[in-house]
């Protein structure tokens, strides 16, 4: 973010003619104050059934902002509405309501589309083309200067580790190689924002690590990466911020530490006995016939132990809770969990 401010300052002091010589999209390119993605109340209702009368809501109104230079994780179980949201951003599906802007421009603005890259879920490409031809084709469609195209294709192929397979038809590619070709086409035209739909799915651990490294490289190059995943460890390791989606509804947006803060600093207390002191009713649950477990904030730990002793209950263990994004995620997915709303409210601030 510091670089962005610096550039902003520089931009303000540049003479006006500087912009004239640049390609049309360059204003946006150097304008870091515009958010990468701005989603405002975007929603989607499909009409299903034979007569398309029955409404089926794929996405409740969704709003969030992704700043430039971020790695933004879009989390949710399968069917949560992640792909629908991505397709709306890509102009493949049209929203029923709300609006969105990418780099401050409308979703059907070709100047914007020249600056974004997209990797669909489980991509499959023209299998009669070689990797080199595929990338040339996509480069032409993106309006990459034909003189620079060949060099650019070679660079990108090397970058994703497909240099040796450049002349091989895609029908002979393995799944991992296809995924790399997919990433190559997404970053080929040096886009400002890269959208990746489940980039790690179906890859072996090595492949996933490679993709992770690639995403980090993209960030280092100053690009914004927006990727959807249902694999939490990937998101936790990579993302500056995440949004959590379930059943078409946004459950939380924020930095990983922010989201998990609500769950952090807790202790798990387990004791034997069947009775639960009234003050612990809300936090406790029975885990076996005569064993009860309660999770409480650590500053209440002494009070609880004191209470248990007064009630003559036998303490079994006291363990500090290690909170991960997964815990938060699970908490969000059970809709009636009280902490979910609390964390949500906090994250939304």
């Amino acid at each position: 973010m510091q670089t962005s401010k610096l550039l902003n300052v520089l931009a303000c002091h540049l003479p006006a003619e500087t912009f004239v010589t640049l390609p049309p999209y360059s204003v946006a390119r150097y304008n870091f104050s515009v958010p990468a993605i701005e989603i405002l109340g975007l929603e989607k209702v499909y009409h299903v059934g034979f007569w398309r009368k029955r409404p089926k809501r794929a996405l409740h109104p969704l709003s969030f902002v992704v700043e430039q230079g971020e790695i933004f994780g879009f989390l949710g179980p399968n069917g949560a509405g992640k792909t629908t949201t991505l397709k709306m951003l890509m102009g493949l599906v049209f929203p029923t309501g709300g609006s969105a802007k990418i780099l401050g421009m409308d979703l059907d603005d070709p100047r914007m589309k020249a600056q974004i890259g997209f990797l669909p879920e489980q991509p499959y490409f023209y299998d009669y083309l070689t990797a080199h031809e595929l990338l040339r084709y996509y480069g032409q469609l993106s309006g990459v200067n034909s003189k620079q195209l060949t060099a650019r294709v070679d660079t990108v192929l090397e970058h994703v580790g497909l240099k040796d397979s450049a002349g091989v038809q895609l029908r002979k590619f393995s799944k991992g190689m296809l995924q790399r070709a997919g990433i190559a086409q997404a970053i080929l035209h040096d886009p400002k924002v890269v959208f990746l739909d489940e980039p790690m799915s179906g890859l072996d651990p090595m492949g996933r690590r490679e993709v992770r490294v690639l995403i980090e490289q993209l960030k280092n190059e100053g690009k914004t990466v927006f990727f959807s995943t249902h694999i939490l460890s990937d998101a936790e390791a990579l993302c500056d911020r995440v949004a959590i989606l379930n059943q078409g509804m946004l459950r939380g947006v924020g930095a990983v530490e922010e989201l998990t803060a609500g769950l952090r600093g807790q202790v798990e207390i387990v004791w034997a006995g069947t009775s639960v002191p009234p003050s612990l009713r809300s936090a406790a649950c029975r885990i076996a016939g005569d064993t009860v477990r309660a999770v409480v904030p650590s500053d209440q730990q002494d009070n609880v132990i004191e209470t248990l002793r007064r009630e003559k209950l036998r303490l079994i263990s006291v363990t500090p809770v290690r909170v991960s994004l997964e815990d938060y995620f699970m908490a969000q997915l059970s809709p009636d969990q009280p902490s979910a709303a609390a964390a949500n409210g906090k994250a939304a601030q």
Binding site: M90, L92, Q122, Y126, L141, Q185, A186
Partner: peptide
């Protein structure tokens, strides 16, 4: 069906 259209239409192609 093969989702190749997605990568085309996400480019500056109307």
């Amino acid at each position: 069906e093969k989702r190749t259209l997605y990568t085309v239409l996400s480019r500056p192609v109307a």
